[in-house]
Every structure is written in C-alpha cells, then in structure tokens.
Design a protein around this nucleic acid. Sequence first.
DNA 1: ATAAGTTTAAAACAATTGTTTGAATTTTTC
DNA 2: GAAAAATTCAAACAATTGTTTTAAACTTAT
Lengths: 217, 217
Amino acid sequence: MKMKNTASDNLKTREKILSAAVDVFVKHGFNNTTIREICQEAGVNVAAVNYHFGGKDNLYVAVCKHVLGLSGNVELRGFDIDQTAPPEEQLRLFIRSLLFAILDHKKPSHEGRIMAWEMVHPTGSLDTIIKDMIRPRHEQLCAIVGALLGPGADVPLIKSTVFSIVGQCIHYRHGRPVITQLHPKQKYDPDAIEKLAEHITRFSLGGIKALAREIEE
Amino acid sequence: MKMKNTASDNLKTREKILSAAVDVFVKHGFNNTTIREICQEAGVNVAAVNYHFGGKDNLYVAVCKHVLGLSGNVELRGFDIDQTAPPEEQLRLFIRSLLFAILDHKKPSHEGRIMAWEMVHPTGSLDTIIKDMIRPRHEQLCAIVGALLGPGADVPLIKSTVFSIVGQCIHYRHGRPVITQLHPKQKYDPDAIEKLAEHITRFSLGGIKALAREIEE
DNA sequence: ATAAGTTTAAAACAATTGTTTGAATTTTTC
DNA sequence: GAAAAATTCAAACAATTGTTTTAAACTTAT
C-alpha cells in the first residue's frame, strides 16, 4: 500500500526533491519548471515526484510551505523590522529587506523569490500565498507608509503609494533582462543592492513627503 | 511553389491571422499563447500560420512589426509628447501615455502591451523589440528626468530614477492579480487610469525633487 | 531468513503543441 | 476554359512534459 508520511519516513529522496524543487522553482517560476529538471538536479527518478508528492502542483505547494516554514513560524509576519525606529528608517529597512529577498544570489531568500514570482505568475495556490507571504508584508508596509503620510491619508492613497514602492523593487527582478540592456553597468551584488535600496528609499521618501504636503493643503 | 509575398498577396487569411495574433499575444504573452488559439480566433486552419508566416516565432516578430507600423513610422520614436512643455508636464504626459498603453482595454495600444510583456517575458527577438519599442521611450524619459534632476545628475542616477518610474507603471499591469486581491476597489477604466497616472506623477515628482535637492547639497 | 511492506527505476502513456505532409480546393494566368 | 500556381484543410508527426505502470531492489518486522 501507499500512504505513510509519518515522522520516520525515509526522508532522503523526499528532501532531495524538495531542496532541488526550491532551487528550480525559484529560478524559473512554476510554469517554466519541468519535473525532469528538478529530478535531474536532485539525482532521482522522474516518478519519485509523483510518488512522494503526488504531482507537480502538490510539490509546488509543498515547496511553498517548506519555504515559509524555514523563515520562522507559519504565522503571518512581515520582514523583521525594528518597530521602534522612526518610520523613515523602517521604510529604508523594508525596501532593503525586500530587495535582498528578491535579488540577492548569495543568501537567497527563497520566500521572497517565490513571492516575486507569484506576483507576476500567479499559480493555483495564489490565494494561500497572498495570505501567508504577500499580505503580511503589504500590511506592514501600509503601516509604515501610513505613518509617513500622516493621519490625513486615506486607505486608497496609502495602498497606491505602497504599490509604487513595491513596483519599483519588483521591476528590478522581473524587468532584469531589459534593465541589463538599458543599463549594462547595473550590478546585483550585495553592495549594489544596498545602493539600489538607498536610491529607492530616497526616491520614495521624497514622493511620500510630496504627497503628505499635498494632503495638508 | 511557395514564396510570393508581393504586395498583391491574398491578404485575407494572412491579415486575419495577424489580427488575431495581436489580440492573443497581447493578452497572454508569447509563451502562453498557442497557435491553435490564434487560428481558432482567426477562423483558419492551424497550418495557415506556418504557411503564411513560417512559424510561431516569425509570426510574433511579424506581429511586433505590424504593431510598430500601426502607430506611426517604423523609425525610433517615443510617446507623442509636447517638447516645449515644462518637464514636470512632460513627465505627467509620459506616465499617462505609458499607463494607457499598457492598461487601457478600450483603446488598446498593442504596442505598449507588447512592450510590457517583453519587459517581463523576453523572447528571442528581445533585442529588436528593445531597439524599436523600449529604448526610444527609455531615452525619452531619461531626457525628461535629466531635465528635472538638473545638470548635477549623472547617468546612473538618471537611469535608476527612470526605472523607479517605469517600475511603478509596469507593476500595475503584471502585478494585477495580486493588486486585485490587496486592493479590490482598484479599477482600470480610463478615469481610474487617469487618477493612477496623477498619483504616480505626483509621487515621482516628489521623489525626483528630493533627489535633486540632495545633489545640490 | 523469510515475508510483507516500501521505495526506486525504466518504460510507457496521454495530453499538449509547433510543425509538416499531401491531397483537395481556389485563384491566377495564358 | 485549361493548365499552373497558390491556398486551404484534415491528418499526421515529433518533441515536450506530467503522470502512471510494473517489476525489481531495498527495508523492516517477525
């Protein structure tokens, strides 16, 4: 018979698949990933995915759960940002965290990369991923932006501003091929990401301040 | 024999295919478009694409050329923006044009939609598309942003700022599924796009002013 | 050690999709 | 109007890919 999945499972190939799947899904997204590529990277037979996970779709949600589990508890949470810092600094930290999560190759935040993919290539499990991965950050950034815009800002304005900030960051991930052609000197090492974060922060703070000023009038 | 392609070609099915292909490519992007879907929409046989265009790839570049040709001459050019207007106004017009090009469903600017797809899903003909569609706008926006930032701004700063602006706009197209969940009230009719453009313009002008201020110091 | 189970692996399956074939049909040309 | 060229169409092909099958190899329990 099949069905076991207790704690004492033979985790070797299951984990090998999971590990390889994280890499490949994160690299190519769900649609452009083949099971055969995952299995080759994992050094296992193609049938293993269906045996251990029951299909590509289920493997993907397993990857998402696994990736979520790695970065702390499964409860909703945003980036790890000092709540006591002034909102300007919190914005800086948020943008920095997001950029490193979606861009850095050395310390890859699979969570952020999956999130970035889902934003552009939603899968069947988009709802879950929004609930667990995207929305927490969204709320977190809304709070920061709300504090910066002041009490006069209504929710639509806050959200539009949040999308403006996130859009800038995401563009560096998904628009990379074009950016590379248009600005060949752009690098993506930690130092360059740091500078990118600084630029987006300054630009966004300026934008927010301008919006806040218009509210007061 | 085959090969004709003179001006007096039988344009009926060829044009039907081209027209349908524009719609479908624009809707789903290159990868998620099947020749069968195009042919069904065009009401022609599947083989017709290969007969008239020689394959999916060639059809796509034909679509790109066609779409470029529709919106003026094939020469490089950006959006139609009054060069004599103050740069603030030019920025507003640029953002407005870009948003309408990639978002509006009523007066669809296929050109802008193809451009938006290529930014996230580059195809084999990315180079051509960048040269003819993306770069002209990029240069145009660089000029506007350069004028706004002042003479102290170096090229990398200008480009980063341009990416910040374009990123905000593109996000509303490709991040739409997520934005819909996070901000269900967001509409995309011309009026809403107008408001979106106004917001992004104000936000960006604020960001640019802040950057310009930092340069002067 | 043997039997029952679990896991692995090669091959086959089925569905999708871009492409080609070859005959039938239409259009053009003389 | 007939021959030639061009076009259309149904069917088949070939490659990719997710999934299933079936038997062999391995593990575990008695």
